[in-house]
Design a protein around this nucleic acid. Structure first.
Length: 585
RNA sequence: GCGCCCGUAGCUCAGCAGGAUAGAGCAUCGGAUUCCUAAUCCGGGGGUCACAGGUUCGAAUCCUGUCGGGCGCACCA
């Protein structure tokens, strides 16, 4: 046990392993029952730095299993840890915390580990061997992306990157809702533009159709390709073609918008193709076999008057068996599939190639979470394997400009497009800002504030820290000094404190990945940037604390080495968020 | 009426698997600029973690209820 740390082993991983070894030893001595689960054992920095460098709650969470009290068990664990390499002292505190004080060389080893791992520093194996399907965006293919889609897009994309960094294989997926009635409306709208392109005066776009200008080029393209062939033809003749062509064009628009945000999906699944392949019918048959679909009557909606309510018999999925409030229809009275019916089959399809599913939805779809969770639960049960399934609900974003709400009307076609916003404030600002709040909390997005270049704005604050590091390295290079790790032992307490914070990056990644919360990375980076800015400013008060000391090349090289590693961690974190680490501002 | 989310400093929000004395920014007050980028930093004041119960060695965190705000509640998507 207690192997010395290797070049590339990170601190928290090393000590988690060491404590595990100590616990295993105690199992052999029968102090702990064999096979005691250790999931709740954590290794973390103590709240108060004066307590030491690392703390573990092992004694507290395992005391019950050991049949003793936390402090007594802590003593047994401390015996095993006290003599370990790099440990200066191990003490029991409070209700049974074990505080470890480490020799300073520990931090220097971590610095070298960051250097050795580079862009891989912080990667975790917790997801190894697991494939996660993350479905996000899935905006209807009826027009360009608007700001209502933005937050889910960014959160989903960052979540996918985070899970990948934490070792999962990730499938980024987009569900194209190209089968519903709205797509007919879209086709009709495009048909109008087609007629317009051929010289017909179409006047005002009738209410209910899509009025957006973005359909004009589609109409022109269709006119150029087909001439007036469909101008006086019955709708049945052109509708399927116009649907297909317009949806395809809309998806190109959407993909271009997503590209502006740096988002690229691996898989686009078409609802229409899903239906054409008979997947929903197959799902229905399977569910009927398992007694989970039956023909029954839908209850009238509660708390809401429906004038022409008539009970009809429909095929219902027994979602109440899995916690839903009502059984849900999978087909309409005309026999076509409901959105849910197709979505249910879609989730079955996704589960074929993934161990785990995550959907990122807007909060306006909160009402349908239970039924789709019920569907996946039914699938899990029927297949006899657990399919973990999470729906991340992303709350609304209120758009402001200098404190005033930005007026939007979908009907009038005056929504704020994602492309406009990215053009105005930039990709990095949009992405980072969307991640500075937990997704389930509502947020404001103020155009005036997010472009502010001050510490009030976390994007700039973090990028500024990185730019400062870059410029320092440039300046040092110009003076002929390169970062080097030969004299790291000359680094002082302030420098080691900075390393201690950087060393937490791997566990932040793991915690964020486990919680499926990429915003934690953004907050961590803010803290790390703050620590670096504070460190930097010590050089303003005391010139001896500057990074570049022309009269001491050796110490300068060591400090540059430190600064470069902090920069590396910032880069790795920003990479998860999909934000550029700039070299200068 | 029902379901989901939220409620933490004057404002905007963090709070990491239930852990030690609840944190940051803004605002406010007082300081640092012959400087490697002051686009930054240091310090002061500011809290009944909405409220009431419960679970336990320990709750901002978990459970129940109440109040307040948001979203949703069609065979729509």
């Amino acid at each position: 046990m207690a192997r010395p740390m290797s070049e590339t082993q990170t601190l928290y991983a090393a000590f988690a392993a060491r404590i595990g070894a100590a616990l295993a030893a105690l199992e052999e001595e029968a102090v702990l029952p064999a096979g005691t689960p250790r999931d709740a054992v954590s290794v973390e920095p103590p709240r108060d730095p004066s307590h030491g460098d690392l703390a573990t709650n092992a004694a507290m969470v395992l005391a019950k299993a050991a049949g003793t009290n936390p402090r007594a068990l802590a003593e047994r664990i401390v015996e095993k840890l006290a003599g370990a390499p790099l440990v200066e002292s191990a003490a029991i505190a409070g209700p049974g915390f074990i505080n470890l004080r480490l020799v300073p060389a520990t931090w220097l080893a971590e610095l070298r580990a960051i250097a050795a791992l580079g862009p891989d520093y912080g990667r975790s194996p917790i997801g190894a061997g697991r494939t996660v399907n993350v479905e996000y965006v899935s905006a209807n293919p009826t027009g360009p992306m608007h700001m209502g889609h933005c937050r889910g897009a960014v959160v989903g994309d960052a979540l996918a990157a985070l899970l990948e960094f934490a070792g999962h294989r990730v499938i980024r997926e987009y569900y194209v809702n190209d089968a519903g009635g709205q797509v007919d409306v879209l086709a009709e709208s495009a048909y109008l533009r087609y007629a317009e392109a051929l010289g017909t005066d179409i006047g005002e776009i009738p209410p209910g159709l899509y009025p957006g200008e973005y359909l004009v080029p589609i109409g022109q393209a269709l006119a150029a390709e087909y001439g007036d062939r469909y101008l006086d033809a019955p709708a049945d003749e052109w509708r399927p073609l116009f649907r297909k062509r317009t949806v395809a064009a809309m998806m190109e628009l959407i993909k271009a918008d997503l590209a502006l945000l740096g988002i690229h999906h691996d898989v686009f699944s078409s609802e229409a193709e899903l239906q054409a392949a008979g997947k929903p019918a197959h799902a229905e048959a399977w569910l009927r076999e398992h007694g989970l679909v039956y023909d029954g009557h839908l209850e009238a909606p509660k708390g809401k008057e429906v004038e022409d309510w008539e009970p009809v018999e429909l095929p219902l999925f027994r979602s109440t068996r899995f916690g839903d409030d009502q059984d849900r229809p999978i087909r309409k009275s005309d026999g076509s599939w409901t959105y849910f019916g197709a979505d249910l089959a879609y989730h079955m399809q996704k589960a074929e190639s993934a161990d785990e599913l995550i959907d990122v939805w807007g909060a306006d779809h909160a009402g349908t979470v239970k039924r789709i969770k019920a569907a996946v639960a039914a699938l899990s049960e029927g297949q006899g394997r657990t399919i973990p399934f999470d729906v991340k609900l992303v709350q609304m974003v209120q758009l402001l400009r200098g404190g005033e709400p930005v007026k939007m009307s979908k009907r009038a076609g005056t929504f704020v497009t994602l492309a406009d916003v990215v053009r105005e404030v930039g990709k990095d600002v949009v992405r980072f800002t969307m991640l500075t709040r937990k997704p389930e909390a509502q947020m404001d997005f103020d155009f005036a504030k997010v472009v502010e270049a001050s510490k009030d704005n976390p994007v700039f604050y973090v990028q500024y820290a990185h730019a400062r590091i870059s410029s320092t390295l440039r300046k040092a290079a110009a003076e002929g000094i390169a970062p080097a790790d030969e004299a790291l032992d000359r680094l002082g307490a302030e420098e080691l404190a900075l390393v201690a914070l950087a060393a937490q990056f791997p566990r932040e990644v793991e915690a964020a990945a486990r919680a499926r919360e990429p915003h934690r990375i953004a907050f961590y980076l803010y803290d790390l940037a703050a620590a670096f800015h504070a460190f930097w400013n010590m050089g303003n008060d005391d010139p001896a604390k500057r990074i570049i000391l022309t009269q001491d090349a050796q110490l300068t090289a060591a400090r540059l080495f430190l600064a470069a590693r902090i920069g590396q961690v910032i880069r790795n974190g920003l990479a998860i968020l999909g934000v550029e680490a700039v070299e200068e501002l």
